[in-house]
Amino acid sequence: MAKVAFLLANNFEDSEMKNPYDAVKEAGHEAVIVGAEKGAEIKGKKGTVSYTSDVSINDIKAADFDAVVIPGGSSPEGVRVQDQMVQFVKEANDQGKAIAGICHGPQVMISADILKGKKTTCFVGIRDDVKLAGAEYLDEEVVVDGNLITSRTPKDEPAFIREILNKL
């Protein structure tokens, strides 16, 4: 059983959190919602789902997890401004852990400076940002490069989830 950290802030894309989270749990893995504070309610931007954070980013280490998932929407903007969240992603990458980001999720990877020389995809609105971070942008439903898994939009979720489960 793998332990997967879901990095979350308000206004995440509802399905990009719910579907991978449910799939990870259904596959028998432990899914942990990581927020700025433990016990905080974190709401989706469409209002169809909300979650309560299981742990605070200040109370965990990347070494305790097997993978990291970064749902899209506006949540990655809220995640990337927290130094501890960015440091967590950087350490997970240094340890070779799977790091999956969909839609705007790669914004956190940019802040963690882990995209240089990697192939990636993302929501089209941030493709210039990933290129400036040193990545090769590919317009594909899912791109796997080493430990990194990236996808573009909710319609790519089946491929995104498949590749997360493959890594676990």
Rank of each mutant, 00 (worst) to 15 (best):
I161T: 01
P158D: 00
K18R: 12
A112E: 09
S151G: 13
F160Q: 04
D139S: 14
A133K: 07
R127K: 15
L132S: 15
D14C: 08
D22T: 13
D14G: 06
G44T: 02
G35D: 07
E141D: 14
E140Y: 06
A135S: 14
A159W: 00
N147H: 09
A9F: 04
E41Q: 15
L138I: 13
K116Y: 13
A98Q: 01
K97H: 04
P106E: 13
G96Q: 02
D128K: 15
V86A: 02
D66A: 00
K97M: 01
V86M: 01
T153W: 11
I102T: 07
V69F: 08
A100F: 05
A62S: 14
N11C: 08
G39A: 04
A135R: 02
R162G: 08
K90I: 06
E16Q: 05
E140A: 12
K118C: 12
A2C: 11
K46H: 14
V32F: 09
D128W: 11
K118H: 12
D66P: 02
N147W: 03
I60C: 03
A63K: 09
F88E: 00
F12P: 09
K131F: 10
L168V: 07
G44V: 03
D94I: 09
S75K: 03
G96L: 01
V34E: 03
G101Y: 06
V4I: 13
D64N: 09
K97T: 02
F160H: 10
S151W: 02
L138Q: 15
K38L: 02
A92Q: 05
V79T: 05
D22Y: 08
L148Q: 06
V24C: 11
V124F: 13
G73V: 01
I149L: 00
F160K: 11
I161A: 01
V86F: 02
G72F: 04
A112M: 09
G72P: 11
G47H: 07
I114C: 02
K131E: 15
E77V: 09
Y51N: 05
A112T: 10
K155H: 10
A23K: 07
I110Q: 04
E141F: 03
A31C: 09
C122Y: 07
S15K: 07
Q95R: 01
A9Q: 06
E16D: 03
I126R: 04
V55W: 06
V124R: 14
A62Q: 10
G134K: 12
Q84C: 07
I149D: 00
N19R: 14
E136Y: 12
H29F: 09
T153Y: 09
V68N: 05
N166F: 00
M85L: 00
V79E: 03
P71F: 02
K25V: 15
G125T: 12
Y21F: 15
P106W: 13
K90M: 04
R80W: 05
T153S: 13
V34F: 03
S74K: 12
K116S: 15
K116H: 13
Y137A: 09
E163T: 00
I149E: 00
N19P: 00
K3H: 06
V32M: 08
M17L: 15
L115V: 13
I42M: 07
P154M: 06
P106A: 12
R80E: 10
H29K: 09
A159P: 00
K25G: 10
F12K: 05
D64F: 08
T121Y: 10
M85I: 00
G146T: 07
G134R: 11
V68Q: 02
A98G: 01
V143R: 09
T121C: 07
S50Y: 04
R127E: 15
